[in-house]
């Protein structure tokens, strides 16, 4: 988290505190202020998070990583990043011009890859996760991967609905934290249609190896959710990981 040189416990009694937590403890003082190194480390991490928020989504690069899987590129109604940040309602609806690009089909699952609040996360982690998922779902009818820019989680509802998908999986960049500018979230929604509530989704968050959840573990978690959703015919609060598996799943998306 910081570039402050590690010191031995003897030289620095606060090293013990620092080793106990990822929080920015035992930073030292310059008068009442922060020492220069600690101040600049914070500014570096804030800069990375800010750049992740404003990074332009490059769907072509994700398509390339998907190694020949069929893809469709769409955008929301938010015209630019400033509009996207101010008007979450626009980010939840498809651009008029892109509606015709999504033909109804017979799909068990449609996966959407979206920038959300961190295109950096989508660029880094979405394609490997999609490939991990595909390998775990033999026999499933999986639609084209939709690459969506200026998107909020709920844009997946309209996309999945137009494609006639029985469920939609939204892989979207989460709001960057100072220590995690590239965290990917995965939101699963059964029977997608405009107007679904957040309480009708399940999410697996903090997908960002090597610091957060790995692709294999995330894919395992999502496959469990998708298989359960297909069995029960629902997602959301009624579908929870009560088996004590080594991952957490929630139904509220606080950070995307």
């Amino acid at each position: 988290m910081t570039d402050v040189a590690a010191e031995t416990p003897e030289a620095d009694p606060f090293a013990r505190l620092r080793a106990m937590t990822p929080a920015r403890v035992a930073l030292g003082r310059s008068g009442p202020g922060l020492p220069t190194d600690a101040m600049l480390a914070f500014q570096r991490d804030h800069a990375l998070a800010r750049d992740a928020v404003h990074a332009a989504f490059d769907p072509e690069s994700v398509a390339t990583q998907l190694a020949g899987l069929p893809t469709v590129i769409v955008a929301s109604r938010a015209s630019d990043r400033a509009a996207y940040l101010r008007r979450p309602d626009l980010g939840r609806r498809l651009a008029e011009a892109d509606r015709a690009r999504l033909d109804p089909g017979d799909w068990d699952l449609v996966i959407v890859v979206a920038d959300g609040l961190s295109a950096t996360a989508a660029h880094a982690h979405a394609a490997p996760l999609v490939l991990s998922l595909g390998a775990r779902l033999p026999g499933w009818r999986i639609g084209p991967v939709v690459l969506a820019s200026m998107a909020r989680v709920a844009l997946g509802d309209e996309i999945g609905g137009r494609l006639g998908a029985r469920m939609v999986l939204m892989l979207i960049g989460e709001r960057p934290g100072l220590s995690a500018p590239d965290s990917l979230g995965a939101y699963l929604t059964w029977n997608p249609a405009v107007g679904r509530l957040d309480s009708e989704r399940n999410c697996v968050s903090n997908i960002r190896p090597p610091h957060g959840l790995g692709y294999g573990a995330a894919a395992d978690a999502l496959c469990w959710l998708m298989t359960s959703a297909r069995t029960l015919g629902l997602t959301g609060v009624a579908l929870r990981n009560d088996e004590g598996l080594a991952w957490s799943v929630g139904n509220t998306p606080p950070l995307a």
Partner: peptide, 22 residues
């Protein structure tokens, strides 16, 4: 700590800020 809430992922005021303003 360091104005960086590592759980809620937002930036608040720090212990140092308290020293400063007091």
């Amino acid at each position: 700590p360091g104005a960086d809430d590592v759980m809620l992922n937002y930036q608040s005021t720090s212990f140092h800020d308290a020293l400063y303003v007091r």
